[in-house]
């Protein structure tokens, strides 16, 4: 009897193994995604580094345009005009598929720093829709923080 059950179970398992795959929409990390209108991926940014803020429970990725990336990687700390940095920050969330991992959750902010001949420009966009924030209180501190970042080793 048990033998029959084992066999039947094996067959049932084969059948369930062939059941439909998950739908792509459920597989995207929607809450962490950037607003569609922004076209961030077309801005020509490359990754500079990745970091985790323990206190605020967030994780961030720093991007730069070509100039920014080259300068961040070279040992001479030049700061010419035309650098653009973009720091994207998410709340962390546990990875549903792997206990032991955290991945980006709700999109929290995008900070942009541009170097120009007349100084640096800092902009802060906040929330799921990345609305421009008028809060400038941390402007200097954040600009310094972003410009001081060292690149991750990517051989």
């Amino acid at each position: 009897m048990k033998k029959a059950i084992y066999l039947m179970a094996s067959i049932a398992l084969l059948v369930t193994a062939c059941t439909e795959n998950k739908k792509p929409a459920d597989l995207l990390n929607q809450q962490a995604s950037l607003p569609a209108g922004l076209n961030f991926s077309k801005m020509g940014f490359k990754v500079i580094n990745s970091s985790i803020n323990v206190k605020s429970n967030t994780m961030s990725t720093l991007y730069g345009n070509n100039t920014a990336q080259t300068n961040a990687r070279s040992s001479t700390k030049l700061r010419p005009a035309g650098e653009i940095f973009a720091l994207v920050t998410w709340k962390k969330q546990p990875d549903k598929h792997w206990f032991g991992a955290n991945i980006p959750g709700d999109l929290q902010s995008l900070e942009m720093v541009k170097t120009t001949t007349s100084g640096t420009i800092y902009q802060l966009y906040k929330g799921q829709n990345l609305t421009l924030s008028t809060d400038t209180s941390l402007q200097q501190q954040r600009t310094r923080y972003i410009l001081e970042q060292t690149p991750s080793i990517m051989p």
Binding site: A32, V47, S50, M59, T61, K92, A101, N102, I103, S152
Partner: peptide, 25 residues
């Protein structure tokens, strides 16, 4: 493939099981 660093990151991971962090391009 050395060109990976010019690709888009599609996610990042903090792995507290083994003390690493990852970027997935």
């Amino acid at each position: 493939i050395p060109d990976y660093k010019n690709w888009q990151p599609i996610s990042t991971t903090e792995r507290f099981d083994n003390g690493t962090m990852r970027v997935i391009f």
